[in-house]
Amino acid sequence: MSIKAPEIRRYGDSAILIDYDVPGYSDRVHTRLNHLAKTLRAQTIWQEVVPSYKSILCVFDLSALSLDDACKKIDDTLKKLSRSPRTKGKVIEIPVVYGGRYGPDMAAIKKSSGLTQSEVIDLHSGQDYRVCMMGFIPGFCFLSEVPKALQHPRYDTPRASVPAGSVGIAGWQTGIYGLDSPGGWQIIGRTPLKLFDKTRENLFLMEAGDTLRFIPSSKALFS
């Protein structure tokens, strides 16, 4: 089955939203969307190309290009888009200490799933995840779908501070906090890896399109 063509919509006066109509996460849409985002980023007319789970926002200079021409350019790009390459991007292993003080919401996930802690850990770390989008803050990565049993709504009122490296669940999404930040995700573990490090040559550990693999680790990781 082929993917339904996305809707091209105007967003304000100098941005276009390319919107794929999919409920939840779709691996096929992610692969296509990521390929499209990379193709668009190689074109010089876009000031920003921001992919997310189901859409791409493209910002252009309204004094150089009209909204109609920008839409047409995206339409042409979509028509000429080559087959999406079957790539996993970089495959990055993320050591995680699950539960205890590093995963304060493990109890809530155990309760709602009816699983033991080691079953939760096996499920969460038992599959690869795609990096679907980065943001809302530097280094935060939004990943593909978690197994059904682990899905859990986010907090209604966010915590005042979630430490950098925290691995969280929000609905079907899972992700890692790039910085210490307020946040409402259910935190089940933490990695000592810095997703964003302003002092490192490679500022970012990953980008959209990469593949992550969680490796359950012992608390000694943090000592």
Partner: peptide, 29 residues
């Protein structure tokens, strides 16, 4: 699902009090 934002985007959270994003605003919301 979380989607891109820009400076100058007006978001509407469930409490009905809108949030106007500025230059340092979150990239997605």
């Amino acid at each position: 699902t979380s989607s891109p934002l820009l400076p100058g985007t007006l978001q509407v959270p469930p409490d009905g009090q809108p949030i106007l994003m500025l230059v340092d605003g979150h990239c997605t919301g």
